[in-house]
Design a protein around this nucleic acid. Structure first.
Length: 399
DNA sequence: AATCCACAGGAAGTGCTGGGCG
DNA sequence: CGCCCAGCACTTCCTGTGGATT
């Protein structure tokens, strides 16, 4: 291959992607198939903002990848085009901003008030946000996406503040849109917060395989050149995602990864085989990346579970794991943490989907958690192996 | 029916980092 | 400068409990 050819190949636009960005999770398409109803309902609820009156608070339920965020962003965008600067919109993701302080800081920031990421008292941030908002004399619509994360971690204090803030405002008004994929979420809420937040409710049902296909086809037409997808690719991505609660995000991610793999291989078309590879890669990447970024003691606990399971131990309990963990820690010259903490770490690993832990009572033999890995040994190995400390630990313990 | 194991998991507090504010 | 704050990882102390065994 001559240099000219080489450069040609890199400089040339992809043969597969027309516009890869159209498949990324934060892209909001110009049309949302099978969500006309929800778009209309939300628009109806928020429309009063255009006339200068406060829209009702809205609560939006639906599993992951059912289009909650997309619909909300879509409606907000349309609305802000109409409203010019008469309405202020603010979108906060509560997975990243999972404390009262951070949510209020985000809201203040969207009004142009700089808030340091730490240092102030939360009540001070609240005051600053309040006065900044009142000075503007506008309607403000606040979206709290994945609000269940916020409440589970920090309680419903902020929600209480925000639902009652209108009593303290003289020239502005605030509306709340809460989004959650936890259907039982409202149980955690204070009754007053609950009734005020749920003035209106919207439910997003999971997509069916047929609907997912429509979504994929629509995106594919924007993202790919004609005819680069083998005919079975879209139905396959749709079917896999339909099994996972009709998750459109997963469907799109599968399609994207499959196409990436095809392109990397220099293939001319995306095939069913690429989709299968993509499925494996997605599953692997998530766990491996999570493991890599875990703090020391979490890794050590995971390592203990890994080693015990490799030895063929069955029905692992908190106590067994803790003993192994202490043994490893001492061997490495690290101070072990308490069993109480390890108990929490096991729950964290369970939440991350790396381990499966459930509480059982063994009668006379106590009440404990039974733990088993929910990922392959190989993924754990790969996740831990970048940590030289863990490699040393494996070597020491297997000798 | 009572007992008692082996923890679960809540509450409060500590020590540390990285930052206010006057 | 001194005193305040949030957030994190962790400790200390604690009360609670499902169900096999006595």
């Amino acid at each position: 291959m001559s240099l000219d050819e080489l450069f040609e190949r890199f400089a040339a636009q992809s043969r597969i992607f027309k516009d890869r960005d159209k498949l990324l999770p934060d892209y909001v398409p110009s049309e949302l198939p099978h969500r006309d109803n929800q778009v209309l309902q939300l628009a109806k609820i928020l429309a009063p903002a255009l006339a200068g009156s406060r829209p009702s608070n809205v609560f939006i339920y639906g599993l992951t990848g059912t289009g909650k965020t997309a619909v909300t962003k879509y409606v907000l965008r349309k609305l802000s085009e109409k409203a010019q600067d008469r309405v202020i919109f603010s979108y906060v993701n509560c997975r990243q901003n999972d404390t009262s302080y951070r949510v209020l800081a985000e809201l203040a920031r969207s009004l142009g008030t700089r808030i340091p990421f730490t240092g102030l008292a939360t009540s001070e941030v609240y005051k600053r946000f309040l006065s900044a908002l009142d000075r503007r004399g506008r309607i403000m619509v606040v979206v709290l996406d994945e609000v269940d994360h916020l409440v589970k971690k920090s309680g419903d204090d902020v929600l209480y503040f925000l639902t009652r803030i209108n009593e303290q405002l003289t020239s502005s008004r605030l509306s709340l849109i809460g989004i959650t994929n936890d259907l039982k979420f409202t149980e955690f809420l204070d009754a007053r917060v609950k009734s005020s937040l749920c003035e209106e409710e919207l439910v997003f049902p999971p997509y069916t395989a047929r609907e997912l296909e429509d979504i994929l086809r629509q995106r594919a037409s924007e993202a790919f050149y004609e005819g680069v997808l083998a005919p079975e690719v879209i139905p396959m991505c749709a079917a896999i995602a339909a099994k996972q609660n009709g998750d459109a995000r997963l469907a799109l991610d599968l399609l994207l990864k499959a196409a990436d793999i095809a392109e990397r291989e220099g293939a001319e078309r995306v095939t069913a085989d690429h989709v299968r590879q993509a499925q494996k890669e997605i599953e692997k990447n998530v766990t491996v990346d999570v493991i890599k970024s875990m703090p020391l003691h979490v890794k050590l606990v995971l390592l203990s579970v890994y080693l015990l399971e490799k030895e063929g131990a069955k029905n692992l309990t908190t106590g067994t794991i803790y003993n192994k963990y202490v043994e490893i820690a001492k061997m490495l010259g690290v101070d072990p943490v308490t069993q109480r903490r390890v108990s929490d770490i096991i729950n964290e690993l369970d939440m991350a989907g790396i381990v499966n832990a459930r509480v059982v009572s063994l009668g006379r033999y106590g009440r404990t958690k039974v733990i088993r890995l929910s990922t392959s040994l190989k993924n754990i190995e790969e996740g831990l192996s970048e940590d030289l400390f863990m490699l040393g630990a494996i070597e020491l313990t297997t000798r």
